[in-house]
Simulated assay, not measured.
Amino acid sequence: MVRLLVNDLNVSYEENLIVKDLNIHIPDKKITTIIGSNGCGKSTLLKAMTRIIPYRAGIIAFDGVRIEDEDTKSLAKKMAILPQITENAVGLTVGELVSYGRHPYQKGWGRLTQKDSEVIDWALEVTGTAAYKYQLIDTLSGGQRQRVWIAMSLAQETEMIFLDEPTTYLDIAHQLEILMLLQKLNKEQERTIVMVLHDINQAARFADYIIALKDGQVVKAGSVEEVIQREVLKEVFQIDAEIGRDIRTHKPMCISYDLLKGEECLNEKVTYSDTSVINART
């Protein structure tokens, strides 16, 4: 089932066209990851789909309605976004920050209702942050803070959550913790998750559907099996990848790769190897 559809999308910053004639769909109740090299338009696409930035041409429709025709509060009840760089929350407690997720449901003076309080407590519990409810955000670790921001997104009670590089600046253990939390929310709460990831193997391990971008266009979109292929990664990242299998998930993974350089890319290679996790940042 498809609820979010993007057709012939063009997005630009001033005269610089970033996303070009792009066509994709987001599978409902699945985890979709968007991969590609730096500057390829991943974050721009995410911001356009969530109406953070306008687009020049094309259609973005949710449940058959163009997102620009949706009332802001109504749209905020359907989709939440966690940006790559979160706002400064200095001086706020965890509970106060998570309560901001209830804004689309508030009326009048914006006082929290009993329902709001129950949802906030539920979001804290699900993300494992209930113990921090009365602590200041700036006293928490990076992984703890990221879980609190996810709790705020959950408090919006949206069916779809967008995350722009949710593992950035986290160590490998906290990266795994966040991705496993998102996977749990997808499986147990049936939340549709759409996230930008840099790490190819993390994308392969946790995604049901992958969209690979290059220069603002789709190179390949499909299942992990369809996208994590040598030729696709060569075009997207300019690497010659050795594809193997994850012994835990049995999904394809990049176990080694050569960096292809310049016009003579077939002859000039710099080799990198890592049999565990390869973070392919180009």
Rank of each mutant, 00 (worst) to 15 (best):
V2G: 05
R3I: 10
L5S: 06
V6F: 10
N7P: 07
D8E: 04
N10P: 03
V19F: 01
V19I: 12
K20V: 11
K20D: 13
D21G: 12
D21V: 12
L22E: 01
N23E: 10
H25G: 05
P27F: 01
P27C: 02
D28S: 13
K30D: 11
I31C: 01
I31N: 02
I34L: 10
G39H: 10
G41Y: 02
K42I: 09
K47A: 11
T50Y: 04
I59Q: 01
I60F: 08
A61S: 12
G64F: 12
G64L: 12
E70A: 13
D71C: 04
K73Y: 02
S74Y: 14
L75W: 07
K77A: 14
I81T: 05
P83N: 15
P83T: 15
Q84F: 09
I85A: 09
T86I: 09
E87C: 04
E87P: 02
N88G: 05
A89F: 14
A89S: 11
A89G: 09
G91A: 12
L92C: 13
V94D: 02
G95D: 07
E96N: 09
L97G: 04
V98C: 06
Y100Q: 11
R102C: 00
R102I: 03
H103I: 06
H103D: 06
W109R: 03
W109T: 04
G110Q: 07
L112E: 12
Q114M: 03
Q114F: 02
D116N: 10
D116Y: 03
I120C: 05
W122Y: 09
L124W: 09
L124T: 07
K133S: 11
L140G: 04
G142H: 03
G142K: 00
G143I: 03
Q144E: 15
R147V: 14
I150D: 00
E157Q: 07
T158K: 02
E159S: 11
M160Y: 09
M160E: 12
D164T: 11
D164W: 08
T167G: 03
Y169R: 08
L170A: 13
L170M: 10
L170I: 08
A173P: 00
Q175T: 14
E177D: 13
L179Y: 03
L179K: 03
M180C: 11
Q183F: 10
Q183A: 14
Q183C: 11
L185C: 10
N186I: 13
E188C: 13
E190L: 13
E190G: 05
I193T: 05
I193F: 05
M195L: 12
Q202K: 07
A203L: 14
A203P: 15
R205G: 01
I210A: 02
I210N: 06
L213N: 12
K214G: 09
D215C: 09
D215F: 06
V218C: 09
V219K: 09
S223C: 14
V224L: 10
V224S: 10
E226A: 06
V227E: 11
I228V: 14
L233W: 03
L233V: 15
V236S: 10
V236P: 01
F237E: 01
Q238F: 15
I239P: 01
D240W: 07
D240C: 03
A241Y: 04
E242A: 12
I243F: 03
G244A: 08
I247H: 11
K251R: 13
M253L: 13
I255W: 08
L259V: 15
E264C: 04
C265P: 02
L266V: 00
N267Y: 09
K269Y: 14
T271F: 15
Y272P: 02
S273K: 15
D274C: 12
T275D: 13
S276F: 07
T282H: 08
